[in-house]
Structure formats: C-alpha cells, structure tokens
Design a protein around this nucleic acid. Structure first.
Length: 364
DNA sequence: GCATGATGCTT
DNA sequence: CTCGAGCATCATGCC
C-alpha cells in the first residue's frame, strides 16, 4: 500500500510524517488544501475526505492511516505491556488526573480500545477472561449525561420524555423542528442527536455547524429553537455560568469542585473555554460520581456474597466484569440493579447488560 | 531522553 | 473563535 502511494505521488517519502505528506499533496500534486495548523497545511482525516474526488491517492492514504493506527497503537503497542510471568495485560487506573473526576487509564489505556470501526473492533477479541470457560459481563449507563442534565435543569419536557421512556433524540427533533413525534425522519433525528450532544458540552454555533456540515446561521437557528422548547435548560445554564463567575468554581452532584480561573480572562477564547467547562463539568463529573458510587457498592456486594467474579474495567459509563459461568446471570442482575439504584435522580437511570466469551462479543 | 505538534482512538 | 474529558503514536527539534 505504501509502495502504491509512493508511485502515485511520484516520490518516496515518510508517509507517517504529516509535514512530508502535506508537501506531497499540496505542493507536488497541487491539491487544494485549506490551511489549518499553526505550522502549515493540515492532513487530518476530515481534510483528506474533502479531497477524495481530487486524486485517487487520498483514499489509499486514509486506509493506510486507519491500518497504521490499529497496528501501531493496538497490536504492536500492546505486546510489550504483557506481563510475561502471568501472560496477562494490566492497565493502571488513575483517580486524580482528570479535571472532571473521571478515571483515566494508561500503560495501556484500556478506555480507548476501538469499537466503532469493525476492523478495529476485532481487537477486542484479544481480551478475554483469566480462566477458561469464564465469561465477561458488561453493563453500561444509557444516555447518562442527558439524564443528569434533565435532573440538574429540572426541565419539564426532558423529565417527561425520560419518564415516558421516549427516544430522547426523537423528542428533541420533534420539539426543535416542530414535527409530530411519530413523523420524525432519521435525518432529523440525527441532527437532533448532535444538538443534544452539543448542549451537554456547552454548544457554540461554530461547533454545531462543523459537526452537521451546515452554515453557522442555520446551526444558530437550531440552538435557538432548542432553548425555546426547553427553557429550563437555558435558565439552568445561565445560572451555572453566573454562579461559577461569582464563586470561581462549579460543583457536581456530590460536591466535587472544579475551579475555573478562565472565566475571568479577558481573552475571549479562554473565557469561552471556561464557560463550556462550567456547563459540561457538572454533568460529566456527576456521571463520574455516580459510577464510582456504583463501583463501591458492587464491590461490597461481591464481597458480601463471596463471589468469585470481579470487576475488571471501568470505561466512564460502563463496567466490565469477569465471572465463572455459574455467576453470569447473577452478575448481570447485580450490576444492573446496583448501577441503576446507586443514586436517585428525577428521571429513571437505565443500565443495559451484555455477556460473552470475550470483549468483542459484548455487543447490543 | 524530553518536549511539542499533529493525528486518531474512546466516552 | 470550530464541542467536554482523556492517552498513545510518530515525527521533529533540542539537550
């Protein structure tokens, strides 16, 4: 693949060097690239995708990048970290690294093993239980951040949607685009999903426009419509930012603080960053509080019952356990109940559970 | 060996 | 001004 790319380029170069690649694409081959980085032309996937029709080399480069990432990070990269004595891989979880209260994982990071792309997802087959014939059981919170937003804002429409077990993205689409709930198209639902997602992060018209590949004005229109339909969320967000500017920090449901000195910056970008963090941290941080409480309770439950199964991983809104086959169904029930009942919100907390012989099989 | 930038993987 | 939170890789420049 590398050879073919060099042939199409008419020159041999280091394909792993963004600088050399940019030179080949935008100078030698005269493709029309937009500047994006401080040092020059960007060659990231989004930029290259926009050049797909300009030259057949582009598709090959994107494919090379995908495979090089998988081989470098997830195949070759994991091998040296296997403990030769135990023939097992152990990650390290950090409790005091992130600004929001989440855990982080390193050496290796097991919180970013591929799942979206099928080629990458196959990596997960390499992760299986310690003991042959044991099973993996996973449990993940369904839309936990939007449920926490419903709780924090006390928005009547959001709370109503979750109490009625409605599809929240469809509900947002119905409200924002003024279409009957049953008549929401999948394309409108996708847009609404991006809006919901953006609200959690403290959306900007630029960010939503980029995400949806639409104009800034149109994106701003969606945001305006959202806040018209969910006024309590606007009031909540306005209040959070005002309080954060007054006190200098925001808090989670369990009173974890994040100080945000950026909020008093004269620099617009820095101040905007502070405002987005003020909006997102109470949500992301409260979700982190929740799963930590659930983990403690689950561990206590496991010890109380003298179970052989154990918690292996936490990936922000999900837990992965390994269990003897005879404990599999019990673990499913314990994990679901413990995680759903760890705290009480104004809306139901919903947890989905899966089991399989390896990590790859833990799918919907 | 260390720092930084660009890129890409996750939630 | 391009959406929050992380970590790993490779290239590159500097010590």
């Amino acid at each position: 693949m590398q050879k073919r790319i060099h042939e199409l380029a008419g020159i041999e170069f280091n394909l792993n060097s963004p600088k050399q690649l940019a030179e080949v694409l935008f100078e030698r081959l005269q493709l029309t690239g937009g500047k994006k980085t401080k040092s020059g032309y960007s060659t990231d996937a989004e930029t290259l995708e926009n050049l797909m029709n300009e030259h057949e080399i582009i598709g090959l480069i994107l494919e090379y990048r995908t495979l090089a990432k998988l081989k470098g990070t997830y195949l070759d990269g994991l091998i040296p970290l296997i403990d030769p004595k135990k023939d097992r891989l152990h990650s390290t979880f950090h409790q005091a690294v992130t600004a929001t209260g989440r855990l982080s994982s390193s050496d290796p990071n097991l919180q970013n093993i591929p799942t979206r792309n099928e080629e990458g997802r196959l990596i997960r087959k390499a992760f299986y239980p310690t003991v042959s014939d044991w099973r993996l059981v996973s449990a993940d919170y369904s839309q936990i951040e939007l449920r926490i937003l419903a709780h924090l804002s006390q928005d009547a429409h959001f709370i109503d949607a979750y109490k009625q077990k409605q599809d929240i993205h469809r509900r947002t689409a119905s409200e924002v685009f003024d279409v009957p709930f049953e008549e929401v198209s999948s394309s409108l639902r996708d847009k609404a999903k991006a809006v919901n997602f953006g609200i959690v992060y403290g959306i900007s018209d630029y960010g939503l426009a980029t995400q949806l590949r639409i104009g800034r004005k149109e994106a701003q229109g969606y945001i305006d419509r959202f806040f018209e339909e969910f006024p309590a969320i606007r009031e909540y967000q306005t209040k959070i930012i005002a309080e954060a500017k007054e006190s200098g920090f925001v808090t989670t449901l369990f009173q974890r603080r994040r100080y945000l000195p950026e909020l008093s910056s004269k620099n617009y970008n820095l101040r905007s960053f502070g405002e987005r963090a003020a909006l997102n941290t109470p949500i992301q941080g409260s979700a982190a509080d929740l799963i930590k409480i659930a983990m403690i309770q689950l561990q206590q439950e496991i010890e109380k019952r003298n179970l052989k199964g154990r918690i292996l991983l936490q990936v922000h809104d999900e837990l992965v356990c390994e269990t003897p086959r005879e404990e599999e169904e019990l673990f499913k029930v314990l994990m679901k109940e413990t995680m759903e009942q760890a705290i009480q919100l104004s809306v139901p907390i919903v947890v989905e559970v899966y089991s399989g012989d390896n990590w790859y099989e833990l799918q919907k």
